[in-house]
Amino acid sequence: MITFNKEKSGNSGVLILGGEFTIERANELKTALIRHLDSVECLRINLKNVNEIDLSCLQLLCSAHLTALGLGKEVVITGADNEVFDKAWHDAGFHGFCCGLMDEKATCFWQGGEN
């Protein structure tokens, strides 16, 4: 399930992902990311209710982040303490690179280690 709530200011919104995010849903996720990133300046992606996520969708989150950087927008991951996500993120070796998504102070791959 993908739900989207826009904040009143209209500048930011929260995309709540729930359920299993595997390759079958990658296209759905991509469409949602494009649409909602387009409508706000800051997109928060909440992963609290994700109970499965595979490489194809992890890549998409990175791509969303990259896209946002290119547009001068922001993508922030919330609810990343979700065990399922944390495991997938680590198993795929994404930690240490794309953590800028979750922790603004950490090094992010796309930001070229500036922060």
Binding site: L33, L37, Q59, L60, S63, D91, A92, G93, W110
Partner: peptide, 11 residues
């Protein structure tokens, strides 16, 4: 394990 994400394109 270190992923290489350099080939990931924009959405």
């Amino acid at each position: 394990v270190l992923a290489s994400l350099k080939d990931i394109p924009v959405l």
